[in-house]
Write a protein that binds this DNA or RNA. Structure first.
Lengths: 354, 354
DNA sequence: CTGAAAGCGCTTACAG
DNA sequence: CTGAAAGCGCTTACAG
């Protein structure tokens, strides 16, 4: 066999054994063109004659050819891997986000590598940089709270890595942002409770290390203000987005006199804690206390009473984020599909007379 | 510059910008050896003189050299990616498993790519094959229920992909298996309820499509038998590992006369449903009904009463699985760390007299 | 619009 | 124990 000539494809169609996949050389030979021309077709170059392109595409389809991502990556000096960099420990959030990213990547030839991290670690930035540079990642999607860390955005710029930040509010240029607009969810929660007649309304916010805590609280206050109400300081508590902190804050709030008749918790975990504390203190929900959460994770439907909450379409957000990263924004989708929405269940009810 | 001579490393140490990472050629030149010898050091070949090796290792360390996984993969005809192939939709399980895999892969140079799938899809096997062959995966970890699908194991053999199956009981050769031994958990649940004095004990099993359903049930029956008890047919129900199926099955069981005084649910989701049904029917737990679950996911601590359950160390199982896949079994860990263990909380109590 | 040459950063196969 | 040549499957840079 002459040097440089591609070998015949063996074992074609037997279905058994690891048969050799066709390469760009095979396609070039079969289509009677140079491999550079095949490369142009793969990369959607405009400089290919229509007839030539169609012939090559037919051969590609016939043989089920797919370019080797490693070889392509080596030549491009960039891999076809997209990283999910996250530190939010909520399993439901992580899984929904992953599913959304995979939705958006389907058929793109990219693959998803996951990278949980710890912002408090001394080696956080070094590790992240090593991960990205070693794998020559195409880009990363950052979710809260890493998405809110300016050191991370600066790092991405410094090493030339594409990135999209998912955050509750815009903190970067539009091409780097997907906003979840948590503020609107806070407003909806306030409107719901006010419309039910509640006036002594409390709030347990998340930790200041999450920007969403502030957005949800400010949205809530804005919603109250729009109805002539306000969040009284004695009815405001700062939690940690955890079940335990929800219990602790609710226990304090329910000891106050007069007691609040409604509590808006910054997330479902804390709302679960509120229901727990209320039960322990003999306060009936929703009879004596209306409770609203935020997230609409599965736990919301498992609680008793089931939880009124704000749904954030995390999966859809993930899909949008990765499409923006790949430069394939899909503008057809209505923006409303990605906005927070109120889901009314059993944990909230009208203010009891008297 | 002469052909083949490596360029100088520019921009070294400035810290800013995407400085060029050193390559095998840089290391070879700096150490005064051929790149093949550097390659031998990278791949831990024994055929390198101790002195030469040490000199090269020093240069590697000094310059923070790490071989390019894409170039290495291209030459090896195999990537340094490990796939997690799963169809269990429980977020907590997925996240714990991912964390365990990442634990085991730390420092190995491998990365984790996630691949959720649907066994019922027509294109399931084709998609899976395409994913593995296109990315030339080093290997995959399979979790239930895909891990129990013989078509998948056969496919791995056919395309020459390494794999490890995580399953409740051995269904393959030892090098391909990590057993979670769910049967032991079922036995522990039976022992716990029997020791509390219960005699009318019911069981809601998972769907037959999960091998764990059978293992948990058979372990439970064995545990009862060891104490002279048995699972009466009228007290046995088949659920679907879902909250809703737990409610439905419990509603049936709690209508029976005489009513069972204890229910062992095949997982926590169904146990949550049991507690829900009991509450709706005015049956107090644990006063009138003891409930035991399986998994010890976060929901177990959020329920009221908090759930007695069987903890499966999923993260540790994941760590072991990926280490087996990489051929780096860590025999130091005691086997007991990976066995199911009973966690007693509030949902189970002694049989009431009379 | 198309192609021959060189190169991405590694390893294999062969020599010595 | 060590190295020069060829190759993995692609793309870039240059020519035509």
């Amino acid at each position: 066999m002459a040097k440089g000539e591609a070998p015949q494809i063996e074992d074609q169609g037997t279905g058994a054994g690891p048969r050799r996949r066709p390469t760009i050389n095979d396609i070039a030979r079969l289509a009677g063109v140079s491999k550079k021309t095949v490369s142009r077709v793969i990369n959607a170059s405009p400089y290919v004659q229509k007839e030539t392109r169609e012939r090559i595409e037919a051969v590609i389809a016939e043989h089920g050819y797919a370019p080797d991502p490693q070889a392509r990556g080596l030549a491009f000096r960039r891999s076809f891997l997209i990283g999910l960099v996250y530190d939010n420990p909520n399993p439901q959030y992580v899984v929904n986000m992953q599913l959304g990213l995979l939705d958006g990547m389907k058929g793109s030839g990219f693959e998803l590598v996951v990278h949980p991290c710890n912002r408090a670690s001394d080696t956080f930035l070094t590790d992240l940089r090593g991960f990205i540079e070693r794998q020559k990642l195409f880009g990363v999607v950052l979710t809260p709270s890493v998405s809110e860390d300016e050191r991370v955005a600066a790092l991405m710029g410094a090493i030339g890595c594409e990135y999209v930040r998912v955050a509750s509010v815009s903190v970067d240029a539009p091409q780097h942002m997907i906003e979840t607009r948590d503020r609107l969810g806070g407003e909806a929660a306030a409107g719901h409770l006010a419309d039910l007649g509640h006036r002594r309304i409390a709030h347990i916010s998340g930790p200041p290390s999450f920007r969403s805590s502030r957005e949800r609280r400010e949205g809530f206050e804005a919603g109250l203000a729009a109805r002539g109400l306000k969040l009284e300081p004695q009815y405001a508590r700062e939690g940690a987005y955890t079940f335990e902190s929800g219990i602790a804050c609710a226990a304090e709030l329910l000891k106050l006199s007069p007691r609040p008749t409604a509590i808006f918790a910054g997330n479902d975990e804390m709302a679960a804690g509120v229901l727990q504390a209320a039960r322990q203190m003999g306060v009936a929900a929703p009879g004596d206390l209306s409770v609203v959460g935020f997230d609409d994770f599965e736990i919301a439907r498992r609680l008793w009473p089931s939880l009124t909450t704000i749904r954030t379409p995390t999966r859809e957000i993930g899909r949008l984020a990765v499409q923006r990263l790949m430069g394939r924004d899909d503008e057809n989708r209505a923006e409303k599909d990605r906005l927070p929405v109120l889901v009314v269940r059993e944990s909230s009810g009208p203010l009891k007379a008297g």
